[in-house]
Each structure stands twice: as structure tokens, then as C-alpha cells.
Simulated assay, not measured.
Amino acid sequence: MTSSNTDSLLPLDALALPELPSWFPLAWGWWAAFASVIAVFAAIVFYLRWKRKRLAPKKTALLLIQREKPAAALELVRQAALCYFPREQIAHLTGKEWYEFLDSQVDQPLFSTNSDLWQNLLYSKQPVDNHEELVQHCYQWVEQALPPKKRGA
């Protein structure tokens, strides 16, 4: 009986399976994902380069001010300010106007209170008692005021 059942079966071929899908060409979603990753990476690189370039004058001024005398430190403050503010706005400022501009960029005034001392220091060769304090004021100004922050009206 078993032999008659096996004889009646039709000869069948092996299963014919379709080919597996290949990885290439990739679907558009994968290309969009790759492009997004590359765009984010490029944006981060460009932002970091822009930020480093923008902060370069500030970092240089902070390094140099620590080694200078007050008159030279104040000159470095002016050079650093010229890197960030329009030349037309600050190049013509001298004396009390200059010190008022400096104080307007920080929360606590550093220069107007000592404006007479600064003026004497710039034009005399006499040593100053509070040499370190004046240099510290210049350092503090560069650290707080640069790059300029947008102030609300």
C-alpha cells in the first residue's frame, strides 16, 4: 500500500526562491540619512572654526595683557576693541569718552572712576602704586566685554 502512494506522486522540482535583495542601490531614505549626518557634521565643523576665529583676538589680548604695564595694557584693550566694534564707533574716542565707552560695555565701571589716574599714567613715566590693579581692570574688561553682547533696549 505504501508503494502505490509513492508511485502516484508527481515528480516535483525543488523550490525556486527569488534572489535576496541587494544592499545596492540603497533606498532614498538611506541616502537622506547619510546626507543629514554629513550636513550636521559639516555644520558643527564650520561653527567651531567660526567660533575659534571670532575669539582669537580676545584670547591673544588676554595672554598679552598679563605681561604688560598699564599703558600698554590699555593700548591692547583698544586694539582688541577695534577687532570687535566698528572703527567709526571707537577710533575717535579719547580721554573720558573712551573710558565711558569701556564702562558702557561691562556691568561694573572699571575705568571712569580712575580716569584721571589713567590719563596721568599714559603721559608720564612715573611708576604707579596700583600697577597690578590697573592691568587687572584691562584683563577684566577684555574678558567680560568681548565679543560684544547684544544688549536689550
Rank of each mutant, 00 (worst) to 15 (best):
T2G: 12
S3V: 09
S3T: 05
T6G: 07
D7V: 10
D7E: 15
S8C: 02
L10S: 07
L12Y: 11
D13E: 12
A14Q: 12
L15V: 08
A16E: 04
A16F: 06
L17V: 10
E19I: 01
P21L: 04
P21G: 11
S22F: 06
W23S: 13
F24Y: 14
A27T: 13
A27K: 14
W28V: 09
W28E: 13
G29I: 11
G29V: 07
W30P: 13
W30Q: 10
W30T: 13
W30H: 14
A32Y: 07
A33R: 05
F34V: 12
S36F: 15
S36M: 15
V37M: 15
I38V: 15
V40C: 15
F41P: 01
A43H: 12
I44F: 10
V45N: 05
Y47I: 12
W50G: 04
W50I: 01
K51H: 13
R52G: 08
R52N: 07
K53Y: 08
R54D: 09
A56K: 15
A56D: 07
A56R: 14
T60C: 09
A61D: 02
L63M: 08
L63I: 02
L64K: 01
I65E: 01
I65C: 09
I65D: 02
Q66F: 02
Q66A: 09
Q66T: 10
R67D: 08
E68G: 06
K69Y: 03
P70S: 08
P70A: 14
A71M: 10
A71T: 14
A73K: 02
A73W: 03
R78A: 05
R78S: 01
Q79M: 07
Q79D: 07
Q79A: 10
A80K: 04
A80P: 05
L82S: 07
L82F: 01
L82V: 00
C83V: 02
Y84C: 08
F85S: 09
P86E: 12
R87C: 11
I90Q: 05
I90T: 06
A91M: 01
A91T: 00
H92F: 02
H92N: 03
L93R: 00
G95A: 12
G95C: 14
E97N: 13
W98P: 04
Y99P: 02
Y99G: 00
F101Q: 02
F101K: 00
L102W: 00
D103Q: 02
Q105E: 03
D107C: 03
Q108F: 03
P109R: 06
P109H: 12
L110T: 07
L110S: 03
F111L: 04
F111V: 04
S112K: 03
S112D: 02
T113W: 00
T113F: 05
S115I: 01
D116T: 08
W118Y: 15
N120K: 14
L121E: 04
L122S: 11
S124M: 14
Q126T: 14
P127N: 02
P127K: 08
V128R: 04
D129E: 11
N130E: 00
N130H: 11
H131A: 05
H131K: 09
E132R: 11
E132A: 07
E133L: 01
L134I: 13
L134C: 07
H137Y: 03
H137D: 04
Q140N: 03
Q140E: 00
Q144M: 04
Q144E: 08
Q144T: 01
L146I: 10
P147V: 12
R151E: 11
A153D: 08
A153L: 14
